[in-house]
Amino acid sequence: MNPSPAIEVRDLSKRFGDVEAVRGVSFSVKEGEIFGFLGPNGAGKTTTIKMLCTLLAPTSGALRLAGFDVTKSPEDVRRSIGVIFQDPSLDDRLTAEENLELHAVVYGVPRAERRARLDEALAFVELSERKKDLVRTFSGGMKRRLEIARGLVHRPRVLFLDEPTTGLDPQTRKATWEVLRGLRDRNGMTLFLTTHYMDEAENCDRIAVIDHGRIVAEDSPEALKRAVGKDVVFVRTNEPAALCAVLAERYGLTPDRTEEGLCFRVEDGEAFVVRLVSDVRVAVTGIAVRRPTLDDVFLALTGRQIRNGNGEAGRDTMRAMARRR
């Protein structure tokens, strides 16, 4: 017997007035798979998650989760899932422990197991010492860790994580990923996550790249990178227009302008660079050659970089502000 997929989405659309947030998205996620939505701000990632977890009614399309129709049996779906939201969702006037306890009760964790589960969850995010403190006294990262711990308390079949590690320090991010992979390996939990971090997306078994409400590519991280194939070359210059012209004329390349300079893809990066430098009269101020990453996949697919460093910092500050209110 073939088990039904953990998540099945067909022609899903969502419109908010004039804004088409999601436009005809289809994909399916197998039981025990780690599936990632990779896309820039406003791509429709959160909107898709909200529809999958019964918080938002789709404009059109079919959604099945753990075999249940999401619009027809929301209660069955809710019993099968856990959600770690992008935006704050803790009660900051309760203690850390009270937040987790309420969650455990509401999700029907048997009383006999509750204590152990809470302690385990708090220990995993290193908040055991602070469990009696009101959440409003926590730092942004501590709140985020607590939200992750809470999502794991009831061991859902399908766990949604909307930008789970935003605002976490690198160590905590790494530790979080170890735990998430462990849950998948031991309990066969299905993970659906969204992210802008390319290195994080590489933890996924499969990735859908989403842009402007549409899936523009879907495959394993390796396959996506292979599809881009060639090496990525960045060249910095004070005369980008002149260099662009030369690259187009002599090599038939159409470079993208990025923060790190002009960017283009060629078969053998190092050899090309050596040739370019001896050939070209335009002053070059810096050169870098990389193997393709998911950033490059995104750039190749959409002609844009997924997000620059500034956006990242700005966003985390905004999140921290939203949390502090």
């Binding site: 977890c53 019964t54 918080l55 209660e75 809710r78 019993r79 899932i81 959600v83 939201f85 935006d87 704050p88 969702s89 803790l90 009660d91 900051d92 969650h103 509401v106 999700y107 029907g108 209110r325």
Partner: peptide
């Protein structure tokens, strides 16, 4: 208040009628 501060989402996805 819960809607403003985000806790309402946690309640609304819970498997509780």
């Amino acid at each position: 208040w819960d809607r403003e501060f985000g806790f309402l989402k946690e309640l609304l996805v819970a498997p509780v009628p």
